[in-house]
Write a protein that binds this DNA or RNA. Sequence first.
DNA 1: ATATATTGCTCTAGAGACTAGAGGTATCGG
DNA 2: CCGATACCTCTAGTCTCTAGAGCAATATAT
Lengths: 137, 137
Amino acid sequence: MLSIGDLSKRTGVKVPTIRYYEQMGLISEPDRSEGNQRRYSKTDLERLAFIRHGRDLGLTIDAIKELISLSQHPDRPCVGADRIAREHLDDVRTKIAQLKRLEHELERIVSHCDGHSIEDCYVIRALSDHGLCEAEH
Amino acid sequence: MLSIGDLSKRTGVKVPTIRYYEQMGLISEPDRSEGNQRRYSKTDLERLAFIRHGRDLGLTIDAIKELISLSQHPDRPCVGADRIAREHLDDVRTKIAQLKRLEHELERIVSHCDGHSIEDCYVIRALSDHGLCEAEH
DNA sequence: ATATATTGCTCTAGAGACTAGAGGTATCGG
DNA sequence: CCGATACCTCTAGTCTCTAGAGCAATATAT
């Protein structure tokens, strides 16, 4: 039986975050000690590791909830889980593309800055005048 | 003189967002019509376009505030503005790198999924077992 | 066994950057 | 001048936590 602090250390999820997940219904209410402190089992540990992993991969709480509920029906086909992961992969790719455009823009902006006075600063000028941008955004 | 709706159309910033920016001190309180409605000048339009552009580039409200205050002292050197842009560029690059790692992980996960039952689903298994991951994350 | 330190409890509020809704007022086109 | 649209203020909600207050339980050291 693990205290909430132990669980936190083992999974890397902060204590208040664990309580938050409980509140959100991601993990079930654990047993309590005589003094009303939370006591976790190995199953709870696994569940939390699962959640942590999903969050690290950028899945939303809702997506993780869905995956948990899917995983509780091991007989059903796994197209649902597959779909969630694929959709998320699409999102990630879109975001990467966006950020790359941004990276180029910022590179251009800082490379033009000659460090003289604000009046001539390309950073400020570029922000003021969208026409100085290379691409639409 | 533009109404808040006109300003919104011209800049692409939604009406409640404009009011929010005013509240946050990003734009100054505009003149009002006799009936107490906001009326904006061309200067206000430019300022808001500047803000919009900065937000599109992913700058925080605070960073934009700083840039605005810098731009109001055109005689000072522009190292401050340069620094803000460079720091942001670093952040963007870090985030791109992170997302790429994530992309690989998700690719691997979905490519292993054979669409049979949840019991064998690689999506679920990968989330449960960090050991199935290629890299640390 | 006791004193102290650490950890735990609940509850509330805050972060960032908006967005939505209620209930009422101004302005504009016809 | 009527009705539609746009505007006003104010409050509360989004999402995923994080921080703090004030108090209770547990662990460690003596």
